[in-house]
Design a protein around this nucleic acid. Structure first.
Lengths: 204, 204
DNA sequence: TTGACAAGTGGAGATGTCTCCGCTTAAGAT
DNA sequence: ATCTTAAGCGGAGACATCTCCACTTGTCAA
């Protein structure tokens, strides 16, 4: 069960609905593990969960949302880890702390590569033009902006670069597309990618 | 007709095949203009061109390839423009030239936004895992790497950043996803984006 | 011309996404 | 217990991508 869900809606979930939710999650987990996230269709998940396609789509508008639900808990944990790290390294330089954040995030990324790619794949037909990013994106973005701002404040030199822009750029480098390209085609290890990113965004 | 095509294959195209190619291109152009690239399906294009779906897919494995064919000529022109620009600014600093390249490319990008997005959308089912990039990508990438290398050579300070990595990063910022996010959500103008990119990759 | 055959065609159909809507059922009110 | 009702269900079906393969047609050599 997902405790983060019942915070906003005061109305409780119907018992049968809750059961179906579990069936879906279990079925998806099973199929993803067996065949890989990309290879599994919403149809298969519905069949495996023994529900109709309509029921599946009522809860998750597409595979992307389903994947997100499957890593939501882990995502929350990562942010807690990062928060804790920042707590314990309050005295460290912002540059060090930024590197710490990146390392933590990429470590997580590596453990959930397939699901994260699944989350980002919103190649669906009915598009509300998701030009906008998720709240999760915004949270990580905010953390990074903060580090950039502290770096800028520390060094007298007035950077004429915008922290928000830089953070966006840094985060697109962590998207599945860009990240896996660097790792699998360019052949960098995760640590080397962190290294390169730090070198790019915070000189030497 | 597309003169760039007949360079490699010595075997000529059958007459009826050439005609169908034209029908496809014309139909696609018409429908794209009328409804927008995203809204048009391969089926619609086949119908409009009065050919079977199989014939369409024989020539273009997906909409992405079709879009690429539709801008290939323009793409070649952009590279010629860039080449010419570099020619005429041989004496300028590499930083200036890099900015020139970016400006030229983004200007082109703005004129073909929809088609470029269409090219990048490879959300198809049969994936040979297109982790690799196109030759077009590689060409632009090479140009940018060259500028970076010249910048590094000029300044005594040994950058511990890899030009290849930096060029990749710069180019992901020019992908539809990232670029349109900056333009439409963050609200930057094309020129401001160039400005930010320059500020990020080549200090002040 | 004609024959052979590679190249090309088209549409049926497998599979997938996603919606619509009539039917069912859990849950609070009476 | 029963009634009401909104939440939930599920499958038919619209529409999309993409493949397969029996059939057709240009093209080239003889």
């Amino acid at each position: 069960m997902n405790e983060a869900d019942n915070l906003i809606p005061p109305r409780s979930e119907r018992r049968d609905a809750a059961e179906n939710r579990q069936r879906i999650l279990n079925a998806a987990l099973r199929l993803f593990e067996q065949h890989g996230v990309e290879q599994v269709s919403m149809n298969q998940i519905a069949t495996e969960a023994q529900i109709g396609p309509g029921t599946l789509y009522r809860r998750y508008r597409n595979k992307s949302e389903l994947c997100l639900d499957l890593i939501k808990d882990n995502l929350v944990m990562v942010f807690e880890d990062i928060e804790e790290y920042l707590e314990q390294n309050r005295s460290a330089s912002p540059k060090t702390r930024l590197k710490g954040i990146l390392t933590l995030f990429i470590r997580f990324r590596e453990t959930k590569t397939q699901l994260i790619t699944g989350v980002e794949d919103t190649a669906q037909t009915s598009r509300p033009k998701s030009r906008t990013r998720s709240p999760l994106y915004d949270e990580l973005h905010g953390l990074i902006v903060k580090q950039f701002d502290e770096i800028t404040a520390l060094e007298k030199v007035q950077m004429n670069t915008n922290s928000v822009f830089q953070a966006d750029l840094l985060l697109t480098a962590l998207s599945s597309d860009a990240y896996l390209f660097q790792r699998d085609v360019r052949g960098y290890t995760p640590d080397e990618i962190v290294e390169q990113l730090c070198a790019t965004f915070i000189g030497h």
